[in-house]
């Protein structure tokens, strides 16, 4: 996997999180966790899933949606669907 592609995916992930949670890109870091900020509530989580599925053209299993508890976890889960970070 090229570094360029990995960087692009990281940028896409950051934008997807920022769009769904309606926060600045600078607020998105690996440790950011579900419910740790008021913007990442259950409604935003649903929007986030839809955004990630669309941006990376994947359909996440329900177990993965439940497990997606942080930005770092999102990267691990998306890797299973062939998206590298």
């Amino acid at each position: 996997m090229s570094n360029e592609l990995i960087q692009t995916n990281t940028a896409k992930l950051t934008t997807a999180f920022a769009t769904a949670l309606v926060v600045a890109d600078t607020q998105i870091h690996d440790d950011l966790a579900y419910n740790s900020i008021k913007e990442w509530d259950s409604t935003a989580h649903m929007l986030l899933i839809a955004e990630l599925e669309n941006v990376f053209n994947v359909m996440l299993d329900t177990d993965d949606i439940i497990d997606m508890s942080s930005v770092a976890k999102a990267k691990v889960i998306l890797s299973k669907y062939g998206v590298s970070f």
């Binding site: 649903m46 929007l47 899933i49 839809a50 955004e51 599925e53 329900t62």
Partner: peptide
């Protein structure tokens, strides 16, 4: 409902 709503969510 689960799958259709996910397609709709992005467009709010």
């Amino acid at each position: 409902c689960q799958l259709a709503s996910k397609l709709m969510l992005r467009h709010k």
